[in-house]
Amino acid sequence: MAKAKGYPEALETKLRDRALHADDSNPQFTKTVEEISRTIPHMCFQCGTCTSSCPSAPRSSYRIRKFVRRVVLGLENEALTDPDLWLCTTCYSCTDRCPRDIAPTDTIMAMRNLAFKRDIIPINFLKTVQAIYKSGHGVPNNDVNRAARVKLGLTADPPTTHMYPEYIKGIQKIIDHYKLKENADRIIKEAEG
């Protein structure tokens, strides 16, 4: 694999420390992950089909089997502070192949939700929230694209929130209901100053 230029600092640290360090078990963590993910990690018998199906496994220290084990053992801190948590591309290959009918991908999503509650979240995820709050789109339109659209006989802005910005207020209300924009702004400010 190419040199890990531009890797986040936390990931570099993780790559140096390969020991599975112990940590206090929290049985509630297992229950909460099962509630959010709506799947059954306690059924896992550690066969490793998930890790062997994972596109991220061969190129990193990310092991989905290890994360599922952490859920079962209630190793909350270990799971939520591990930077590998964010290397799942959510391809669902492990979910498709799990012989115990678990959806390991969804346990990862649940753990990411719980990490966010502790302000552990990559900044790029929060920038998407800011973009959608502002325009309704995660990837907004731009001038080059507007000109191209007109040439194609399309409207310069698509008939989404871009053409009907009056719909953005409703989106902002939904996001504000969960205080998501507020938290995104705060965490980005703390990270970037």
Binding site: R112, T128, Y164, L180
Partner: peptide
């Protein structure tokens, strides 16, 4: 589909808070 927004991005929004993800997609 007038006034539609981002779906929202399942990776970004789903990872942060699945409840917001459900509500935004429901809109």
């Amino acid at each position: 589909l007038k006034g539609a927004s981002c779906c929202p991005a399942p990776g970004a929004f789903g990872s942060i808070d699945l409840n917001v993800f459900y509500a935004m997609a429901a809109r």
